[in-house]
C-alpha cells in the first residue's frame, strides 16, 4: 500500500479532468481545447504549490533549528557545557515557589575551586579552562537525580540546587562531590591545600519553606557556609540547616 499523499485531492482532480477529456464529453473541439488549456494551467499552478509548500517546510525547519540553537545559547555556559547562571536563576525561582507552596525541603550547594587563580597563573588559561570543564562535568555527574541542577555561577564558582532534598541528603551529596573531585586528581602544585585541584562547598537546607521565608535566606546561607569552608582550610564543606 502506498503512503498517503499530501496532495491526494489535487491529483484526483487532475485524474477526473483527464478522464473527461478521454471520454470526449465536450461537444466541439474548441471547448475541449479550452478545457485542455485550463487543465494545463491547473497542473502548472499545482506544481508551484507543491514546491512552495516544500520551500516553506525547508525554511521552517531551519528556523526551528535556529530557535533551538538560540535557546541553547541563552541557557548554557559555552565553556563548561553546564547551564548558565541565567537559566539557573529561572529554575531556582520555579523550584523555590513550588517548594514554598508544598513546604518541601530544599537544599543549595555553592561550590568554589580552591586557589584557582594560582592554578591559572601556573598552568595557563587554556589549562584553566580545561580544569573548569572537568570540574563542571564531574559535578554534573555527581549530582545525579534528574531534578538536580548544576550551573556555572561565574568564574570558578558553581551552584547546585537539590529539590526535595533533606539536610542529610544534601550533606551526602556534598561529601560525594568532594570525593569525586579528589578522584579527578588534577595536579595543582601551587595549591596550599592539596596536591590536586580541590573545592570548597557551602551547603544550606531549608527543611520547611513557608511564605515567611525569602529565597535569599537559603542563597545567603549557602554563600555564608562557603565563606566559612574557605576560611577554615578549604577542601571541605560547611553546612547549615535553617
Amino acid at each position: 500500500m502506498s503512503s498517503p499523499d499530501l496532495f491526494e485531492r489535487e491529483y484526483e482532480t487532475i485524474k477526473k479532468c483527464q478522464e473527461l477529456l478521454a471520454q470526449k464529453v465536450f461537444p466541439d473541439k474548441t471547448s475541449a481545447k479550452h478545457y485542455q488549456d485550463l487543465l494545463h494551467h491547473y497542473k502548472k499552478l499545482f506544481s508551484q504549490l507543491r514546491h512552495l509548500v516544500k520551500i516553506s517546510d525547508i525554511q521552517q525547519k531551519e528556523l526551528s533549528h535556529l530557535n533551538h540553537h538560540l535557546v541553547q545559547l541563552s541557557q548554557y555556559d559555552p565553556l563548561t557545557g553546564v547551564p548558565n547562571r541565567r537559566y539557573f536563576e529561572e529554575e531556582l525561582d520555579r523550584e523555590w515557589r513550588r517548594h514554598q507552596r508544598l513546604s518541601l525541603p530544599l537544599s543549595l550547594i555553592m561550590i568554589d575551586i580552591d586557589h584557582f587563580k594560582l592554578y591559572n597563573d601556573l598552568y595557563g588559561h587554556s589549562a584553566g579552562d580545561d580544569c573548569l570543564r572537568k570540574v563542571a562535568q564531574t559535578l554534573a555527574v555527581a549530582v545525579n537525580r534528574p531534578s538536580d541542577l548544576v550551573a556555572r555561577f561565574g568564574g570558578e564558582e558553581f551552584i547546585c540546587v537539590l529539590p526535595q532534598t533533606t539536610y542529610k541528603g544534601a550533606c551526602a551529596v556534598g561529601q560525594r562531590i568532594l570525593e569525586m573531585i579528589r578522584l579527578l586528581d588534577i595536579p595543582h602544585k601551587d595549591s596550599q591545600v592539596a596536591q590536586h585541584v580541590s573545592i570548597s562547598l557551602g551547603i544550606a537546607t531549608l527543611p520547611h519553606p513557608t511564605s515567611e521565608h525569602d529565597l535569599q535566606d537559603i542563597v545567603g546561607a549557602a554563600d555564608q557556609c562557603l565563606y566559612l569552608a574557605k576560611g577554615s582550610g578549604r577542601n571541605r564543606f560547611e553546612s547549615i540547616c535553617l
Binding site: 506544481s47 508551484q48 514546491h51 516544500k54 520551500i55 525547508i58 525554511q59 525547519k61
Partner: peptide, 14 residues
C-alpha cells in the same frame, strides 16, 4: 547556507 541551496533546488525543479 544549506537552506538557500535546498530552496534553489526546489525552484530549479519547477
Amino acid at each position: 547556507n544549506d537552506t538557500a541551496f535546498e530552496c534553489g533546488e526546489e525552484f530549479k525543479e519547477e
